[in-house]
Each structure stands twice: as C-alpha cells, then as structure tokens.
Nucleic acid binder design. Structure first.
Lengths: 189, 189
DNA sequence: GGCGACATGTAACAAGTTACATGATTTA
DNA sequence: TAAATCATGTAACTTGTTACATGTCGCC
C-alpha cells in the first residue's frame, strides 16, 4: 500500500480530480511512481473512506461534474509517518532494456529503431518537464527558487526526472550508434 | 507476463540456478527489471513447463544440489518475437522520491539523512557495476570491446545502470545540500 | 460526422508481496 | 556460536492490469 503515499504527496500542493490526478501520474508523478487511472480512482475512494483525503463536488455546466480532492490533516500525518520509515529499493522495469540485454541474439534493426524512438520520446519529455519547471519557479532563477521558493519538493523530483530522461536519451543514442556500427561492420566483413 | 522475457534474457549468456538468477536480479538485471526470488522460482517452473528453458540437475557434495537453466531454441524464438513488439512505457517506483515530493510538508532531517544514505548506496552500486564491466570486457578497452566484443547486450544495460546510479547520487547529494541550506537559513531567520 | 478531451468507475483476471518452511555449510 | 550463504520452494494475501461501460462537449 505505497501508491497511497504517492497519491497523498501529489495532493499536498494542489486540489485535483481523479482525472487530473491521472494526468499528473502521466507526467510529473511518473518521475517516481507509475499507476493507471483505474488504480487512482480506487485509491482515492479508499483514502477518502479512511479520512486521509477529502473530496468536494464541483458542478460544471459545459463539462461533466467532478470531485476535487485534497489531503486532510490525517493524510499529512500519514505522510509524515511514512517519511520516517525505511525505503524499499527503487523499482525499475523497462521492456527496451530487456531487449538490449538480448541484443546479441535478436534482430538489430528493430532494436535500433526502438532506441531512436525512445530517444525522441525522452527529448519530448525533457521539453515538457522543462516547461513544468519554468512554471513552478515563475520569474525566479533556479538558484533563487531553490533557496527561497515556497514549495521545492515537486521541483526537485522534476529535476530528477529530467536528468533521468537525459540519461535515457544519451544512452539510447549511443547504444543505437554502437549497434548500427557493428551491423555495418558485419555486413562488410 | 513480461518477467518471462527478463528471465529469458538473463539466461541467454549463462547457465544459472534459481538462486544464481536471484542474485543476478539483485545486481545486473536490477538495472532494468525488479523481481523477488520467489517469483523467479515460479517463473522458471512455468518456463520449463512451456519448453522455453531447460534445466539440468547438478549434484553437489558440500552444497545442496541445484538445477541449472538455459534458454532453449523456443525460448530464443519467444525473445525474438518479444523484441519486435511495442514497448510499454518504462516503469519506476521510488519511495524516496515520494518523500522528496512531500519535502515541504515533512521533517527535513530524516529526509536529508535518507538522501545521504541513498547517495552512499549509489556509490557502492557504481563500484560493483564497474567491476562487472571490467570482468565482461576482460583485457579490452571499452571502445574496442563495444566494437568487437562478442556479447555487448549485458554490457550496454550495465552502462545504463551505472549512469542511472550516477544520476541518482548527484541528485541525492544536491537535493540534500539544498534542503540542508534551507533548514539552516530557516533556523537563523 | 468523427476524434480527442473530460469525467468516473466496475469486473475478471494476472501478477507481485509477505510470511512461512527446511536444512547443511562456511565465515566472522 | 551466531550470522550469512547456498538452495528451493508453498500458501495466503494484496496489488496491478485488461477489458468493459457510459455520456457530453469542443474541435477539425
């Protein structure tokens, strides 16, 4: 039950609907936690039942009505308790890396293509996350914001996400180039 | 059922027991896939049942007997098929990042401590993975190995793992320093 | 007129985690 | 002599995924 804490952390600074939360898990939160919309709706229901978040109905004319959630005092207390517990080792799963592990045994062409796609995807994500950072720090420089800004938690995790995607991009491009060169050399040889 | 492919990829270059496989998932394979020993024993049984790996009993005097597994031709074919399918988005979960997301609302002390621990852990892992790389490339330089080495798949994923841990370490140290400075400034103010 | 965004879920199934179980050997 | 390593699992429980279900509004 750790999705619980990721959801609470996402609801600390903003009041969000399930739908908006799902979008957050598709971008900023994705830097440290993966979850599908269905899980989020279910978790919000459990969190509300347990008094860790509270929801309020917002009636809309032009859009379907929605419920906006925030963490309650009990929710914040739960997060504080969680922050003092031991960390599980970080958890990664990546199909593409599984394929690269098998690179010497599978067709190189498809792999090189997928590495290029992933690199392009990483570039796009870096752009998006960069936009989030600019939005968060407003007019401030990064240095000033990190010293004196009000809420730096989401900024820091976003920085980690950008660095991760840069690492991804660089590694994908380099690996693709290496596989391509080996393929060419083999075709010549 | 994607653990299946991670296990197959790990069994391409080496004949491993369940126990040794679990160790691989604790180090090299952990760079792209997370799984517990119990899952691996169960998955090996399923893979063998489906003819994708084959096991052979090895009788030992001083240690309990063990079964060594390798991928069969059918297993390799399954991996080739997998290599041509679309990738799921990469999957990350990290308790520590959840806590940093909530950094503005929870006690800074514990967080700074955990960031320092994680940085030290990353350093240790970089050392271990660096050792793996040296072992894989033998006497060759990295450039030569990547051009002419026989099996570069595991080498490439290991490079990604090292870069990931370096990114982790740098981000942890920087974040800890920022949180520390803010805490000190607050205490002074 | 079709597609994507908004908005919220349920149900069936697959996968992962935690706790338990056993027992010899080597190292500190 | 206590702890770690080698070696392999089972059982109960919790979580996550896939497929389905519904309906409006705005844009191209």
């Amino acid at each position: 039950m750790a999705l619980r804490h990721a959801v609470l952390a996402a609801l600390l600074d903003e009041e969000l609907s399930g739908y908006q939360l799902a979008k957050a898990f598709g971008l900023g939160v994705a830097n440290f936690w993966h979850a599908l919309p269905q899980q989020l709706y279910a978790e919000l229901a459990r969190l509300e039942r347990d008094g860790l978040v509270s929801g309020r109905e917002v009636v809309q004319d032009t859009r379907p009505n929605k419920r906006l959630f925030t963490a309650t005092d009990a929710g914040l207390a739960e997060l504080e308790r969680f922050a003092a517990t031991a960390n599980k080792p970080s958890f990664i799963r990546d199909d593409l890396l599984v394929k690269v592990q098998a690179a010497d045994h599978v067709a190189a062409g498809a792999l090189i293509e997928q590495l290029a796609e992933r690199a392009a995807f990483a570039d796009a994500k870096i752009e998006l996350l960069g936009g989030l950072l600019r939005k968060m720090r407003g007019g401030m420089s990064e240095e000033e914001f990190l010293r004196h800004g009000e809420r730096i938690g989401p900024y820091l995790t976003c920085l980690r996400g950008i660095a991760f995607e840069q690492g991804n991009r660089d590694w994908c491009r380099r690996s693709a180039a290496i596989l391509e060169e080996r393929r060419t050399a083999h075709a010549r040889g």
